[in-house]
Design a protein around this nucleic acid. Sequence first.
DNA 1: ATTATTTATGCAATCGATTGCACAAACAAA
DNA 2: TTTGTTTGTGCAATCGATTGCATAAATAAT
Lengths: 343, 343
Amino acid sequence: MENTKKTTIHDIAEKLNVTASTVSRALNGNPRISDTTRKAVLKTARELNYEPNQIASALRSGRTQLIGMLVPTINRAFFSSIIRGVEEVANSLDYRVIVSQSNEVFDNEENAVKAFLNARVDGIIASIGKNTQQFDHYEQVLERGLPLVLFDRTTPNLQTSQVVIDDYQGAYLATSHLIEQGCTRIAHFTTERKIDIYKERYRGYVNALEDHGIERDETLIFSGNLQLEDGRSHAQDLLNSGADFDAIFSASDYAAMGAMQVLKEKGLKIPEDVALVGFLNEPFTSFTDPPLTSVNQFPIEMGHTAANLFFNALNSEKKEIVPKKTVLQPELIVRASSLKKKS
Amino acid sequence: MENTKKTTIHDIAEKLNVTASTVSRALNGNPRISDTTRKAVLKTARELNYEPNQIASALRSGRTQLIGMLVPTINRAFFSSIIRGVEEVANSLDYRVIVSQSNEVFDNEENAVKAFLNARVDGIIASIGKNTQQFDHYEQVLERGLPLVLFDRTTPNLQTSQVVIDDYQGAYLATSHLIEQGCTRIAHFTTERKIDIYKERYRGYVNALEDHGIERDETLIFSGNLQLEDGRSHAQDLLNSGADFDAIFSASDYAAMGAMQVLKEKGLKIPEDVALVGFLNEPFTSFTDPPLTSVNQFPIEMGHTAANLFFNALNSEKKEIVPKKTVLQPELIVRASSLKKKS
DNA sequence: ATTATTTATGCAATCGATTGCACAAACAAA
DNA sequence: TTTGTTTGTGCAATCGATTGCATAAATAAT
């Protein structure tokens, strides 16, 4: 402990001949403290370079001003932007954000939540792992009366606030846009995964077709992991099958990108021969050639919303935690990859 | 407090008719505790579902197991990957990472560091803001005897460990590669900013030219903010100037991308007419057409290294904190944008 | 058998701030 | 003047775990 001895409320108290209680109250704006005393305390605190020890405060008050934030992968634009959004709101309210990543591994997810609880966070904001089927660790959070907000990857199994974007609407917009551009044979890349968001995108695709009187063709629907390679192989399969198609709506930008590569390699023109739309508005979409039309999910705003829901829950009477589900509206970002009609 | 009452070491102690001290020691593997007692404690702890209260522990021991991590921008691939790297090491050692972003604003940086100190983090890993000229807030960290590790954006003004990549070497590799591809009139996009990393890249560029007997031409050097738009306008200027050039080495991928757009718009072929190399290996570089050659800085590994330096400092005798500077070697990722010679 | 040493545990203070309850002083009401 | 309120502080317990020092019991050394 060769650190310069930190000043505590006791030092301030001693100097002013009052007790630590008084100092504590003065610093916290308790109305029972006289103006004179309050000012003296604040002045002395400044003079002594006092900095509150949040750990001591946390132990006694039970509030750490920490939010545990769990994401599958920190270094993916979508998630890092959400973290950014949460951090912005949290910081402005003097809360700090602890981040952990699950890497889609259930054990990691469970451990992270436990670690958060041990660190005595005031609550958790999380996106559920792809393979998570069991939610005991989250139940524990709720049982302790802590706010829990789920974003993007949510589950109906937990009675808690969540924020998602309207994947159905995003897919509907994307598909409708392609139809408006004159496409009628629209392929779709999706995944088998049992995650709602992909089901919703699929539903939006199908409904848009139906609403425009276009029959769904199962041979145009491909299921995989939605990575670049999947997009490439789906495109290959499409071409090999000899199927008639004039557009692809991919539930992921990466798969769309894979398709773009293959199509270009085969000498096909985008969007003239095949129009392309992706999903997520990854940063790279504006840099492809042609730039890729995609669906923006406003991740930073999603982070803001998640944080707001969190603080709502935190400040509400514990008795009546009314789980609130917020659905954000996505936006179709139209770029050259889907613009057949030059307007 | 309707939360299920958490079990404490006192509950365990009571049940076993020992004291809390014994329980604490047993849980912490203190050798002065008998095997019998230790086992009984561990068993009871499990039965009662005991979870240590890290806040209480932190208050007493002075160790919070928290690392404060400060980055300019969370949602940029380079930084989020570094966060990821740090998080991986930290988590494996049972430490948690609190992230804050400065957005390159000095006040934010200062406040974040103060907030970290108030939260009593065990140390800080940070990248300095572009405009930061004053380092008092970091000095405070060192004065308190806390480990401070700087990464990427560092400063010689602080006596502390740092990890950077060899920007000089990266630029040297990039420029040499262009020369090997037969380029002799290589433009360079850089910035006026007083940050070492860009100076180093500039130096690498110049030295590579010299070493290959190519004279530097000031009319081929452009300075700006290295964003997409800067790249575009530099490229425009290059073309308008009528200067003779057959390659561009940009100190940033974004500016390189801007140049690629403009060059393609003007009907120039890449790499045949102009070869292009960027810097940072942004995720989008593999998706451009042609894919952009760039310099990989291994951000995740940089995160690992930063974390390792951090724990070294944390575990070393406070007396002898030997600041250590680690220089990582970058790698040139050769893609089509610079491959004139098809090998 | 006596003393010295080791082993295992307890005692009580401590980390620094918060907070319910008590209470003196000052002021208002009767 | 007496009683009732309000105002401003103090007292002391508390949050839960850690740790230096003391000590009883068990074992080893003489």
